[in-house]
């Protein structure tokens, strides 16, 4: 790349602002403006071309290797999360909990209709027993009153 003089630099600069310079010409301009001695009116362009040069020198940071515990975390964290979700799902929405189960005299009954019939029968039997018990209690109360009355008027 040939160095250029001030006159050429000014001509190229004009073309540069029109967007008509080639990449090679722009490199020549950059080299000219990054030199130490420049006319006063061209000094701002030194800053501009140095800015472009410095920007082009920026490199991405090297990707640092992950620490071991973070590698383990990366591997096992998704597995642990999946296992936790699986357990939670089967605890809350286990199909076994939705099956109807009842016990009659130690026998397991899973049919809902059969269980309902049995419950109705049991309820009816219990109602009858309660009625009988109430009637007996009434009779017992009457007998008690009767005994007290006899004891009152016919002392022993």
């Amino acid at each position: 790349m040939e160095p250029i003089n001030e006159t050429t630099a000014r001509q190229l600069l004009e073309r540069y602002h029109q967007g008509e310079t080639s990449l090679a010409e722009e490199k020549q301009l950059s080299a000219y403006f990054c030199q130490a001695l420049l006319p006063a009116d061209l000094l701002p362009y030194r800053t501009l071309f140095r800015f472009f040069r410095d920007e082009a020198a920026v490199t991405p940071p090297e990707s640092a290797p992950l620490p071991k515990h973070r590698i383990y975390l990366r591997i096992f964290a998704p597995i642990a999360a999946a296992a936790a979700c699986f357990l939670l799902f089967f605890t809350l929405y286990s199909p076994a909990q939705h099956d109807f189960v009842c016990y009659q005299d130690g026998q397991r009954i899973q049919d809902q209709e059969e269980a309902l019939q049995l419950a109705q029968q049991q309820w009816e039997q219990m109602s009858l027993r309660i009625q009988k018990a109430t009637a007996l209690a009434d009779k017992w109360e009457q007998m008690k009153n009767y005994t007290e009355t006899i004891n009152k008027y016919i002392p022993r």
Partner: peptide, 20 residues
């Protein structure tokens, strides 16, 4: 692209001269 480049460079020229 050429138009945008030219406009951008001219704007920067104006601004940089003011800044300087």
């Amino acid at each position: 692209v050429r138009t945008n480049l030219s406009r951008a460079r001219k704007k920067i020229r104006e601004q940089i001269n003011q800044l300087w």
